[in-house]
Amino acid sequence: MKGVHCTFITTQMPLPTTVSDFWSMVFDFKPSTIVMLNDKGQSDKSCAQYWPNDDSAKFGSYSVSILSTSSDGDVTTRQLKVTRNSKTSHTVTQYQFHGWPKHGSDQQPGARSLVKLIRAVKSSTNKKKEFSILVHCLSGAGRTGVFCTAMECIAQIAEGDSVDIFQTVKILRADRMQFVQTEEEYAFTYEVIREYLHTENYEQLPYPIEDHTYGNVEIDYTLDPEENPYEVTDPQEAGATALMYGNVETERSQDRPKPEPQQPYSVYENFAFDS
């Protein structure tokens, strides 16, 4: 996935038959960070754990070992080392996120935890590599889309002090239509950005109305007809030079002199000539 500011590798939770393929992808692209957005308890039997419970485990041609493990709130961090054929190796940091909101009332604490995760990912990411972040959830679309959108929006804020969440989702969905699948996920994206702005001490300002901005104006359609600023005038009463639409008299216009009505005249007229 290539956004305007960030690039990602996005995938689903590995299946029991694709764990070695998962590590092959990691070994080929060498991301510095793996972000896991689903708990192991949320995984059904079709998904497989791709890291060892103890010191090390072997998945096909790849051997994976745990260098360190730590927990901080809703995030578990693991340093993993993958080795292929006992020769070359690559070290990657895995962040497993446990705080995804299960209900609408949990969105604010979930957003606070996700902002904390994004900060940790940004600090550990190798900015020199194009695809340094691998993101996955059960499907590789819903939660993954929210996370990628949030990171892209935060990069927008850092660059230009403004953000357009709708357009960001639209750009990412052009490449992956399944991103941000539900209205709840879309609302949660806004909650994450709102939480980030709050923690960064941004002040929420009213939206400026510029000259090119069009908005609905409330009009009172119950006005008395006499208060209409324009009225139809009979040209026969006002004279041939009168307009079809004339201004209604106001207090300011009552003092102005009124023009004398003019009699209509013919274009041709007979004259008497002296012989």
Rank of each mutant, 00 (worst) to 15 (best):
D161R: 12
P52W: 10
F147C: 03
T7L: 04
I171P: 00
P229N: 08
T250M: 06
L205T: 14
S86L: 13
T182Q: 13
S275H: 05
T17H: 12
D44I: 03
V135G: 02
T69H: 03
Q42L: 11
G99Y: 04
G60K: 02
Q262W: 06
Q167Y: 12
Q204K: 00
P257I: 14
Q156G: 06
S68T: 10
Q12G: 13
I193A: 01
Q12N: 10
S65E: 14
T10Y: 05
K129D: 07
V35I: 08
F131K: 13
S275R: 10
Y221E: 09
Q204S: 03
S124N: 14
Q12K: 09
F97M: 04
Q108E: 13
K116L: 07
E184T: 12
R78V: 11
S253G: 08
T149C: 15
D28M: 06
H98W: 07
N53G: 09
N201P: 00
K170Q: 15
E269G: 11
S63R: 12
R78K: 15
T233I: 12
K45Y: 12
M13H: 09
E152D: 02
V92E: 08
R176T: 06
G104Q: 10
G104Y: 07
I209K: 10
S46L: 13
T77Y: 02
V75L: 02
G3C: 07
P208D: 10
V248D: 01
K2N: 15
S139E: 12
V192K: 01
N126A: 02
V248M: 03
E152M: 05
V169S: 08
G215W: 10
P257F: 13
R173F: 03
K30Y: 01
F273Q: 13
S65A: 14
S70K: 14
P101Q: 02
D274Y: 12
S56L: 02
Q254A: 15
